[in-house]
Nucleic acid binder design. Structure first.
Lengths: 137, 137
DNA sequence: GGTTGACCTGGAGCGCACTCCAGCTTCTAC
DNA sequence: GTAGAAGCTGGAGTGCGCTCCAGGTCAACC
């Protein structure tokens, strides 16, 4: 909490990291690779993240969490700067990504079946076994 | 198909790669890091994968697909060599992993909500917009 | 006014999971 | 018996997404 009492709410990088769940290094890294715009700076040249910045970070995090590659996130970020004109392309990126996520969920679910089968199998095996330590004489 | 007509079914590395969906390099890599046992060799010293080998590869692929780190897969592979005695630990690994997969599915699903929201938003925005090219005079 | 701690920069390093390469052997087909 | 395809080995290289570091600045508190 290092606000100069003038601007409503800005966050030092440590606070922004805490709130976004990213590391300080990652925040600077995201800025470097232009995933986020350079945030405002305070009088001492330190980054001062706004609520909007945090909201964008939050959305980026959703995209990362769902496995969108950073390259594509950059493309999305770039389009964002063009405002409304790029709404179509951005929508298409998200739709495409939604398909990927749905497919991924399906993939995971199908692997779950195998896991369940294997686990059941082990359960049966173990139940059938005489206890390993106290062998039944 | 390079079988000497004696052994029932073995597969050259290219065929094994094709059937497992892994690359030839990955098969050799998995062997190097002891995820799989060295397969049999034919008279010329070439790898000859069995159906059992392929089944194990198939299972490994499920684990990888669901994000199990290779280190843990190695641990699982190691336990496997101890036979029935390690059924308990192996079951525990799979149960733990199942939890991870379920959590991951939930995470993806919750991100989907955000994606859907955003996409709807774009749809509304775009619908409200006068067509970009043929501006309404 | 000196120390402490948060933050700054540019750049190097890292862990993971492959992937590629050079140089060699071996089988197959002509 | 020779060309070409497929496979072999050990080791180096790659792409991704961070993560760490050295050396410096700045502000605040004692």
């Amino acid at each position: 909490m290092t606000q100069p009492t003038t601007q409503p709410t800005t966050y030092a990088i440590a606070e922004a990291a805490h709130r976004s769940g990213l590391s300080i290094d990652t925040l600077r890294y995201y800025e470097r690779i232009q995933l986020i715009d350079p945030p405002a700076r305070d009088s001492g040249g330190r980054r001062a993240y706004s609520d909007d910045d945090l909201a964008w970070l939050g959305f980026l995090t959703k995209l990362r969490t769902t496995g969108m590659p950073i390259k594509l996130m950059r493309e999305y970020a770039r389009l964002r700067h063009q405002g409304l004109a790029s709404a179509g392309p951005r929508k298409r990126i998200l739709e495409r990504h939604r398909e990927d996520v749905l497919a991924r969920i399906e993939e995971l679910r199908s692997c779950l079946d195998v896991l369940n089968y294997k686990i059941d199998n082990y359960a049966t095996l173990i139940a059938a076994e005489p206890r390993p330590q106290e062998a039944s004489a």
